[in-house]
């Protein structure tokens, strides 16, 4: 394992070390907002103490796992391809932007536009789990993958902000909540999660509980809503060809 005290090192220098080092396990200490940590990298295991900067694990590739013991800034896992990002604190805006595969588990909350434009293809199904609550525009333009918001400190209140699922045309959003967002757009349909739905997220929740030591029974002993796109309203209805 390679230990690096990052302090005021530039992101370029830091990434060069991580990229070029034969070692694939890193312990980064004293991280001070360095951006793009591990961008596009394969097979790197990175533990971060301190605050990583924007676009942590952008385009992250197979076999990589980033564990952040504190909070993250914006665009965590931007266009992430594979691998895992585990955040013990909260995330800023646009966590999981256009994520295409892999997992992001956030123990705390996420800011605006979490999971925007995530997409899935065949075996690549991105998963974003937010432990507490998410800001506005959660899952905007969602095209594929799964977003789960657990609302762990919300006592059954709706755990998302305004405009959840705007422009959603694929994927699924799970909200652990007794109430639905009040301003859901027409292109989103909702229902209470059935057994099959819960079964489909069981492994993910188990992993979440293992990572952050939660009791999975408490998590499942609550109501889940499922938000899906309304396939009867495709975008083409907006147009008149001339």
């Amino acid at each position: 394992m390679q230990k690096i005290t990052v302090n005021h090192m530039s992101f370029k220098q830091l990434n060069n070390i991580i990229r070029d080092d034969k070692e694939d396990t890193f312990d980064l200490d004293d991280v001070h907002g360095q951006r793009y940590i591990a961008a596009g990298m394969k097979n790197k295991q990175i533990k971060i103490k301190g605050i990583p900067g924007n676009a942590l694990g952008a385009c992250l590739d197979e076999g990589s796992k980033i564990t952040v013991l504190n909070n993250c800034q914006d665009a965590t896992g931007d266009t992430m391809n594979e691998g895992e990002i585990i955040v013990y604190g909260n995330c800023g805006d646009t966590a999981g932007y256009s994520m295409r595969g892999g997992k992001i588990l956030i123990k705390g909350s996420a800011g605006y536009r979490a999971g925007i434009h995530m997409k899935a293809y065949k075996d690549e199904k991105p998963v974003l789990v937010i432990g507490d609550r998410a800001g506005s525009f959660l899952g905007e333009y969602l095209a594929g993958g799964i977003i789960i918001v657990l609302g762990l400190n919300q006592n059954g209140k709706c755990p998302v902000g305004n405009f959840c699922g705007t422009g959603m045309h694929g994927g699924k959003i799970f909200l652990r909540s007794d109430e639905l967002p009040k301003d859901l757009p027409k292109q989103v349909v909702t229902r209470k999660a059935n057994e099959e739905d819960i079964e489909s997220i069981k492994d993910i929740i188990n992993q979440f509980c293992c990572e952050f030591t939660f009791d999975k029974n408490i998590i499942f002993n609550a109501n889940f809503y499922v938000l899906e796109p309304n396939t009867t309203l495709p975008y083409k209805q907006h147009y008149t060809a001339i």
């Binding site: 295409r100 925007i116 434009h117 333009y141 594929g144 045309h169 495709p234």
Partner: peptide, 16 residues
């Protein structure tokens, strides 16, 4: 890299 037959939506801005 999206399922066959699904709409492909490119939003007006990059939201980041």
């Amino acid at each position: 890299m999206i399922p066959q037959g699904s709409d492909a939506i490119s939003p007006a801005p990059h939201h980041d």
